[in-house]
Design a protein around this nucleic acid. Structure first.
Length: 302
DNA sequence: CATGCCCCCTGCACGC
DNA sequence: TGCGTGCAGGGGGCAT
């Protein structure tokens, strides 16, 4: 599921359930996700109030009253869902349904691959589900965030103020890789993934095979290509966020609703289809680049 | 240092 | 129906 627009959609969905609420109980239902949970993972969560839920690149970051930050990554298949007034609710318990002090999900809501559950004082339960377990959670002291290896090398936010054509040209002018590989590199710009890189390159009419360095002049000044590309990245991300992200396979918003930006893909997963660019007449092709599928129109992306 | 490849894991679509 | 193969939104770790 999760590139920047999907993670941002998740953040907005979790905010009402988590911000300002206390984590009354936390459950880790296995010993690891991609990495083992820290030994004190549960202890550092229970009793803490979430004061804010932010996002950096594809990471969610929950600020806790203790001064810790809960870092969460969705990997390839991670998703959250919010169960309002779940069986953990202390104020709205149906008599006989729950033993006081116990925290259970309604039977019908307990699914395979539910690995982490936060029972919030609001009565909501926040459930992390991740079949492939490429996702992970890690608690970091806020004053140690700057040294955190997982975050350290991240480049600028693509929708942030520092990311512009000048900066993109600057970070690409010495690169020997393709434009596709450069945009997937989270140190160049943080938050794009395979779908949105394909879409942005298509919309900018730039070939994924083009050398990244061609975004800059010899003096590392941005070319028109760089300016066009930054515009396309902004456009595609903003449109996707507005659409609640993309639901390919089973990505859901936290409410369970589907995102719908997948219907707006112009090249991704459209191999063999006619190019949508006016008067192009090309056909969308697929090839493997750095081990990942690239979709593009060889006729109008140069 | 930069680059590219392998691999972690499960589920699903496809061809036979 | 069942089985084998390939592929999937990411990115850490390692060889080159």
């Amino acid at each position: 599921m999760p590139e920047l627009p999907e993670v941002e959609t998740v953040r907005r969905g979790l905010q009402p359930a988590m911000e300002g609420s206390k984590i009354v109980k936390a459950e880790a239902r296995r010993k690891d996700l991609r990495f083992p949970f820290q030994k004190d993972f549960i202890a550092r969560l229970e009793g803490q109030t979430v004061t804010g839920l932010g996002r950096r690149a594809k990471y969610l970051m929950a600020d806790l009253t203790s001064g810790d930050v809960l870092l969460m990554h969705l990997g390839m298949s991670g998703s959250f869902r919010v169960l309002e007034n779940g069986a953990n609710s202390t104020s709205k318990n149906t008599p006989g349904q729950n033993t006081p002090g116990q925290f259970h999900l309604p039977r019908s809501e307990d699914r395979a691959h539910d690995h982490v559950v936060f029972h919030m004082s609001s009565g909501a339960s926040v459930v992390f589900n991740d079949p492939r377990r490429f996702g992970y959670m890690k608690i970091i002291a806020r004053n140690a965030l700057e040294e955190e290896p997982l975050l350290k090398g991240l480049g600028p936010e693509p929708l942030g103020n520092e990311f512009d054509a000048r900066m993109l040209a600057q970070s690409c002018h010495n690169k020997k890789t393709s434009l596709k590989a450069a945009l997937l590199d989270q140190r160049v710009v943080a938050g794009l993934g395979n779908i949105y890189v394909c879409e942005a390159l298509y919309r900018a009419h730039l070939s994924p095979r083009r050398l990244a360095a061609t975004l800059a002049t010899k003096k590392a000044e941005p070319t028109d290509h760089a300016k066009r590309l930054v515009g396309s990245i902004h456009d595609v991300l903003n449109q996707a966020i507005k659409a609640g992200g993309s639901s390919i396979s089973d990505h859901r918003q936290t409410s369970g609703e589907l995102g719908y930006f997948q219907h707006s893909f112009q090249v991704y997963d459209r191999e063999g289809e006619k190019c949508q660019t006016a008067r192009c007449g090309g056909v969308v092709r697929r090839f493997v680049q750095n081990g990942r599928s690239t979709f593009w129109c060889p006729k109008c992306q140069k």
